[in-house]
Design a protein around this nucleic acid. Structure first.
Lengths: 148, 148
DNA sequence: TAAATTTACTATGCATGCATAGTAAAATTT
DNA sequence: AAATTTTACTATGCATGCATAGTAAATTTA
């Protein structure tokens, strides 16, 4: 049997985690991205949405749609930023705070189980390799940039 | 600065790879999933689509749509399977074979650069950790299964 | 063999990722 | 200060992932 490639393994692993997170979120009629956003929003004060994207690793355009859905679900309110007319401040509702706790629990539980199951040293290697791959890819050193 | 979580790192890395593959495929008006499918199709004889999904790690429903798009692009033909009236056999067109070579090049190039940049030992650890996470997730041992 | 079940797809809907395009406000340049 | 550029969104479209539902053929069961 052929050895699986790095990209295959990365994809399979992330897809499985995605599915698991969406299932856990789905138990409370939520989604993975909503959970990530909830966790990134300050529960006490308004969070500018510009702060959320980089924190979550989500692009502004995807985030905008997620926040719209979250507002429709009653998880957040988008209020104008008095300091900047272009910007919005995200405030959690009580329901949002409740769901934030749930989402944090899901993510923490996963992290705990991973840490129980894999040695600290192997996890460090894993993170370092992933970061190296990320750097290789984002530094655009792999392919030429010309259109063919 | 807080240490990034495993899920964050997995997601960021896979998303970067996805984007890169889609960019490379986009240079020839193709997509990542199409490239993966092309690589999995036998260039010489008809491949039953039941064989493709597991090989690519793609569910039947996603694969079906991808194959439909590929047929519309002229990359493949779907022919009836004389041995089974439910099944289809996927045949590459000449254009499909040409694009298959291109897609293989993209994937191989990535694999080569990764192997040049990361030690064999670290890569093995990376794969092993990813597989452990995959097992943890797919064995459903992380969360209880009740709806709340 | 007839009925029930399983298998192999196909269609469709939602979530989310990226790309592109557009708007309005802020910041910068001239 | 006016013009230009940048920034912070928002809207929308396509690709792809999963879920659900439906169809037809094959297989199994009774």
């Amino acid at each position: 049997m052929k050895e699986k490639t790095i990209d295959y393994i990365l994809r399979a692993t992330w897809m499985a985690v995605t599915k698991m997170y969406n299932e856990e979120a789905g138990k409370k009629d939520s989604t993975m991205a909503t959970g990530f956003a909830l966790i990134s929003i300050d529960p006490e004060e308004g969070t500018p949405s510009t702060a959320l994207g980089p924190k979550m690793g989500m692009e502004a355009t995807s985030l905008s749609r997620t926040l719209k859905n979250m507002e429709e679900k009653g998880l957040i309110e988008r209020r104008p930023n008095p300091l900047d007319g272009r910007s919005v401040l995200i405030h959690l509702t009580d329901f949002g705070r409740e769901m934030r706790e749930y989402s944090k629990g899901v993510v923490l539980r996963f992290d705990e189980v991973v840490k129980e199951s894999i040695s600290e040293e192997d996890l460090q290697t894993f993170k370092q390799v992933a970061n190296t791959i990320l750097d290789l890819v984002t530094s655009k050193k792999i392919y030429s940039t010309e259109k063919i």
